[in-house]
Design a protein around this nucleic acid. Structure first.
Length: 140
DNA sequence: GCCAACGTTGGC
DNA sequence: GCCAACGTTGGC
């Protein structure tokens, strides 16, 4: 069971928009980076990901679940790109900001810190647990 | 608004 | 295949 982190600009696609989609979920389209594509394609149905707001907010705000595994990105005019469908699972009670992540010794190796520009990232089990806890969620 | 980091493109 | 130039992302 792997964990992930999905980055989005809230002006483009926010947690609120994701929640409004409900159980139908939403295709995570528009990824145009090979490393991110690799991660998208490694995602399995039922795996979970942090939903991260970049830009102004800079915080993990909730958790989504993969509802459909990688399939061709319909927004790609050319090239071989993939997307997955994700469904909102649970909001964080307390958003975990980038500053919080950087301040936590255990999290200083997170891809979020090390490779800030990667939009689809793997998260380790230990990181997952801690960030959930910081967000005010019971870890499962 | 600026700049650093990274990825992509194109000339050689 | 190398590398400089350029564009984009995202934090500050």
């Amino acid at each position: 069971m792997a964990f992930w982190l999905l980055k989005t600009e809230p002006e483009t696609w926010s947690w609120e928009s994701q929640v409004k989609r409900g159980a139908k979920g939403e295709p995570w389209s528009g990824v145009r980076n090979y490393q991110a594509r690799l991660n998208l394609r490694a995602m399995k149905k039922g795996e979970r990901a942090f939903f991260y707001h970049s830009g102004e907010a800079r915080a993990v705000v909730g958790i989504v679940e993969v509802a459909k595994e990688a399939y061709p990105d319909h927004s790609a005019e050319k090239g071989d790109w993939s997307m997955v469908d994700v469904v909102a699972v649970e909001p964080f009670r307390i958003p975990v900001t980038l500053a919080d992540v950087k301040a936590a010794a255990m999290l200083c190796e997170m891809v979020l810190v090390k490779n800030t520009r990667l939009s689809v990232q793997p998260v380790t089990d230990a990181e997952w647990k801690l960030v959930c806890k910081m967000g005010g969620l019971k870890t499962k």
